[in-house]
């Protein structure tokens, strides 16, 4: 596991989530950031800050990335979402094209 293969996602409260790039790229928005040539200075340092996304939601999104990879490789489990975070999670997912 190499540092270059990971990306650090930072929430509005400054909490950091270090995930595999392959997982983060489940989000089309993050994929574009990581693969666009020459742009987005954040991604060159392997860090993306999301001032609009709270820690709770960002962690849930990271869990979703991994669930998505596991599901794609054939594991059939459910992804649990607490009802009270549904709206905020949907707005973040919409922004991230996840």
């Amino acid at each position: 596991m190499k540092k270059e293969d990971t990306v650090k996602l930072i929430s509005s409260e400054g909490f950091e989530f270090v995930v595999d790039k392959t997982a983060a790229m489940v989000s089309h928005t993050i994929r574009n950031m990581l693969t666009s040539p020459g742009s987005f200075s954040e991604t060159q340092h392997g860090e993306v800050t999301f001032p609009e996304i709270s820690t709770l939601i960002l962690e849930k999104i990271c869990q979703y990335f991994y669930w998505h990879l596991q599901y794609a490789s054939g594991k059939e489990t459910e992804f649990h979402i607490e009802p009270e975070i549904t709206l905020e999670l949907m707005m973040a997912a919409n922004y991230l094209h996840t």
Binding site: F15, E16, F17, V18, D20, C62, Y66, L69, Q70, K75
Partner: peptide, 19 residues
């Protein structure tokens, strides 16, 4: 090949997702 599971390793304000 994806690994079967992941764990969340936490210290201070950082969480590492490890496959």
């Amino acid at each position: 090949m994806e690994k079967a599971i992941y764990i969340r390793v936490k210290r201070h304000k950082t969480t590492y997702f490890i496959q």
